[in-house]
Design a protein around this nucleic acid. Structure first.
Lengths: 241, 241
DNA sequence: CTATTGCCTTGACTTTGATCAATCGCGTCT
DNA sequence: AGACGCGATTGATCAAAGTCAAGGCAATAG
């Protein structure tokens, strides 16, 4: 399987792909160097700022993308305005859904985001040529399904205090995936309002629970966005995880 | 793509497969008659009664299954006993997760269930031979992901009254998928306790909300399990859907 | 340099759904 | 028949989270 990748011959790869995480952990890892070259000719790097809608009601997007950096939030909205964030995507996640029509979800940049975009047609053709690509998509989809179900437990059964701790734990472990030490420091990719929409709470409750965690010395709030966690296990404990 | 199926030559198919929904709407539809014959030799029909654990902590199951009839609930549990149903599966859904290790989910028969089981090894070999099979799995996984995210909105943002109405609407539309009329009659596949675990509520709240829907004549509770919905749109209204 | 704005926090009060407890209906076992 | 168990309903009370309202802080605009 890995024999196709020929990582040694890095020089065969498009410059942009060489340092790209998506080629290792993302879907591009399923492609041969020559497929990468051909895909690369049709791909464009884009930089979008926080708040931009990437996929949504407005424009039927004609592209798929890999997230290069930043955080994308997937949101569902009710007709009366209530909304729920149903997923967060980090690099090198794949953005878009081949073979499946939209399901009322919009994707917005939660932070400033860099993506690598490809025309849908190109990806759909490549999937037919390279079954391994579809396999990667299945694996990412299964991962997203697991995350969604984990979060259903959080939404349905955890208290506000546990929810906020769970969120912080999620971010702490995603921002720095290979954290050896048990202490972490990071920027929150979401506003209080986004956090509330992710947790099924109000911003006031989120704020109060953050304050409580701070007073209990489980976290350190350097400023609104910057959080430090001296002991990840203690945080996990608060999240009942 | 459909050319492979050769539905006309029904006589080539294994007897058990001929009337099986999974061959049409389920994953078996991806297989040629000869593949079906070979798969059929290794498959076994099983009938399990409500409450039986199909996949779980206890035994590392060596098989995948198609649901032939009945309802399967997917449950996540916290160490202190709180639990959340994270998905319901109906015929002809595929049960099991190729290429992905267990994620703390157990699958139990919510009602009496009939399944058609295959050894994991056989399925995994067939996936390599027939990319279309993997394509079907991706499609089912995407469907489950959509359903999970729909439910996240329900769990995070709907009131108890809306949650219960949403659940009834979900069952009403799944039990009789091709309901022409706007009135439906069905058996609830879950106990009140299961419904509560699905909705992130207590059984008392579920009961009260059902009573309220009954008093408001949105539903008719024939007996504990048997419900009639005279007007599906009115129910959808209550679910804010 | 002050005014405005957006985002967040804090406090007082209300509401929703949870908890605790009693009772009912129904099937089953003796 | 009577006793029991199990699931569901109903009521009374309580607690957690929501709502409403005021104010703080920091960045940006005038």
């Amino acid at each position: 399987m890995d024999a196709h990748r020929k990582d040694i011959h890095n020089s065969e790869l498009p410059v942009l792909c060489r340092a790209c995480e998506a080629r290792h952990r993302g879907v591009c890892g399923a492609l041969t160097p020559s497929q990468l070259v051909s895909l690369n000719k049709q791909s464009t790097r884009k930089s979008v700022e926080a708040g931009t809608e990437l996929i949504g009601e407005s424009q039927e997007s004609r592209t798929y993308s890999n997230i290069i950096s930043g955080v994308v939030k997937l949101t569902k909205m009710m007709s009366d305005g209530r909304q729920q964030i149903v997923g967060l995507q980090f690099a090198p996640d794949f953005l878009g859904r081949p073979f499946r029509i939209d399901s009322g979800i919009s994707a917005d940049a939660a932070t400033d985001v860099n993506v690598c975009s490809f025309p849908k047609t190109v990806i759909e053709r490549m999937i037919k040529e390279a079954p391994e690509l579809e396999h990667r998509l299945l694996e990412q989809t299964l991962k997203e399904l697991d995350e969604a179900r984990d979060w259903m437990l959080t939404l349905g059964r955890k208290t506000a205090a546990e929810k906020v701790a769970s969120f912080l734990y999620l971010i702490a472990t995603h921002v720095n995936p290979d954290a050896e030490s048990d202490s972490v420091s990071f920027q929150l990719p979401l506003t209080r309002s986004d956090i509330a929409d992710f947790l099924g709470l109000t911003i006031e409750t989120v704020s109060r629970q953050l304050t409580k965690l701070r007073k209990d010395r489980v976290i350190l709030i350097v400023n609104n966005r910057h959080v430090e966690v001296p002991d990840l296990d203690a945080l996990a404990e608060r999240a009942s995880q």
